[in-house]
Amino acid sequence: MLFNFVTALTLFAESIQAASVLRFGCSSITVERLDPLVNPGVNPSPHVHQVVGGNAFAAAIPSTDVSQLANCTTCSFSEDLSNYWTANMYFKARNGTYKRIPQIANRGNEGEVGGMTVYYTSAYDKSKVTAFKPGFRMLAGDPTMRTKAGITKWNGICFRCYTAKNFGGDNGAPCSDSKVDSVDLPKKACPGGIRTTIRFPTCWNGKDLDSPDHTTHVSYPSTGTFENSGACPSTHPVKLPQLMFEVIWDTSAFNDKALWPADGSQPFVFSQGDATGYGQHGDYVFGWKGDVLQKAMDASCFGATCAPLKTQAFTEANKCAIQNSVNEPVDGWLTSLPGMTSPLGRK
């Protein structure tokens, strides 16, 4: 399965010759209730996140050049001091208790601990993309969403249920196959786990490094998608690299239907109380050093190696750490989701 995937991805990269496709792993740096994008300075923030990247992550991150604040990263590209985070997934047992679902490394595991796989892709039509600027940050998805409305328009957020260990059932690009991809959480046991995919907006207004809602300074293409070279709207004319997260949730320990709700309903819930999956979201704070990301986007790189970039082994990356600042349990069997007061996590 790994060989087939790598072969397919290599052929894909060759077919878009001029595009750079950075694809690299990042270990977890913390799992706690902090959100310096949506709830800056709030400690603890409303719900738990799993975070990867640089050690400047804290309850508040100054709107400045983050690469000057951090001095290490849990990502394989050592010059990427950005932070990337998502809500955590929990299992809700029949008795009403919760347990956090661990993240596992994606295929090509080189020693990552938890975390996620991060992608940066340049334009498939060979047009110029402009790398993010120091101080840039954005949000993809809406943590309060509980309906399908607006979820599928850009084909940007989805789940895939792996049918076997070693990522069985993954035979296509993310969010590409309606038979295996869904915008809601899978309603059956997934022996190989569940994959989360989050695609970020790829058009920028060229002025603002952030916006009050962390989304209106950016946009998805006005027509089509980034993959088919859809045009950016006139309000957001600057084409950005496509940032994408992949998180593999190891649900294999929770496949015993005797633990599931008595009515057979799916038992997984995100840490903000979302049992639908529609509220899946990702947060990003840019922190690459200097202009190295722009050089990588211009260099037709592929995978976790790129001539303009410095890499590090995960034996080194996994030494990067921060001290947790929220004193509460997030693991083990819990009577409620951290920060939440009702059974489904709504205040």
Rank of each mutant, 00 (worst) to 15 (best):
N171Q: 13
N95C: 11
F24Y: 15
F254P: 04
S234M: 14
M145N: 15
N228T: 12
T86A: 06
F136P: 00
N327P: 00
T197N: 11
G168E: 06
G230R: 07
A123W: 01
F254K: 00
W204S: 01
H236C: 02
D80G: 04
K239D: 05
L259F: 08
F136S: 07
T225C: 05
K207L: 12
K295A: 08
A19S: 15
P174G: 03
A173L: 14
Y124S: 12
Q242W: 01
P191A: 07
A59I: 08
D274I: 00
S127F: 11
L209I: 14
V52T: 14
P338E: 01
P134V: 07
R195V: 12
L334G: 01
G169S: 10
R100S: 08
T235M: 12
S229P: 00
P329H: 10
I16T: 13
T73R: 01
N95V: 01
T315P: 04
K188F: 13
A313Q: 14
F270L: 07
R137H: 11
M138G: 03
G108I: 06
L309C: 06
Y119N: 10
R195A: 12
G141R: 00
V66I: 15
F314Q: 04
A149K: 14
F286R: 02
V238S: 08
H236R: 01
A258N: 15
F57H: 09
N4V: 11
